[in-house]
Computed example of a mutant assay.
Amino acid sequence: MRGTYAAKTEAILTQHHRREVSPNQCSSRLTQTIGAPMGLVWSMVRDFGQPQAYKRFVKNCLMRSGDGGVGSVREVRVVSGLPAGVSVERLERLDDDARVMSFSIIGGDHRLENYRSTTSVHEEDDLDHDHDHDHDRITEKRTVVIESYVVDVPSGSSEEDTCAFANTIIRCNLMSLARIAEKIAAGS
């Protein structure tokens, strides 16, 4: 089963998360497993107008144009303490069948130039767990979220520093998504 899972994962990465990276850019991919139903997680990720529902560094979001569909533009205000105040972002892709969302940063007062992100949501199959030490096998459905990006490396910065900054923000957002979705799924 693990071979099949690995093959499925590679197909997903090839289809949705492979990008050409030029010499002045960096790219990374992060993954988060969430103990909540895929439909719940996707409903949170796909809501372009409400990133603050799980993204901890977003203070608020104002839709500048569109209704949350492809081509919509949002203005995201970030919490104080980050080296930015506003990010203007356009939804490039929203595919409910494949559960893939992509957006680009098109403006703002930060150093993330030519930032393009893709997030995909998938069901993780065949996870076996022991139940109450009696070794009865149960199957639990979990969700895997993959987020990848490409961004220009600003002058005066290194590829490592640029990726470290972006990875930290994304990792925090994915962990927050997991906490919130798992809490909702548990009925708390």
Rank of each mutant, 00 (worst) to 15 (best):
M1H: 09
K8F: 12
T9S: 05
I12T: 11
I12E: 02
L13H: 04
T14E: 15
H16N: 13
H17N: 10
R19W: 08
P23W: 08
R29T: 14
L30Y: 05
Q32N: 10
I34E: 00
G35H: 03
G39F: 09
S43P: 05
S43C: 07
V45C: 05
V45Y: 00
A53M: 05
Y54T: 01
K55C: 02
F57Y: 09
K59G: 03
R64H: 11
G68L: 11
V73E: 01
V73A: 08
R74P: 00
S80Y: 02
L82K: 12
L82I: 10
P83E: 05
S87W: 02
V88H: 02
E89Q: 13
L91E: 02
E92L: 15
R93Y: 04
R93Q: 13
L94M: 14
D95H: 15
V100L: 05
M101T: 04
S104C: 11
I105F: 08
I106C: 08
R111V: 05
L112K: 01
H122T: 05
H122A: 09
H129D: 13
D136S: 15
I138K: 14
T139R: 15
E140V: 14
T143S: 07
V144S: 03
V144C: 05
Y149R: 03
V151H: 00
P154F: 05
S158V: 06
S158F: 08
E159L: 12
E159I: 08
D161L: 06
A166K: 00
A166L: 10
N167C: 15
I169R: 01
I169Y: 02
N173G: 09
L174N: 01
R179Y: 04
E182H: 07
A186L: 11
A186V: 10
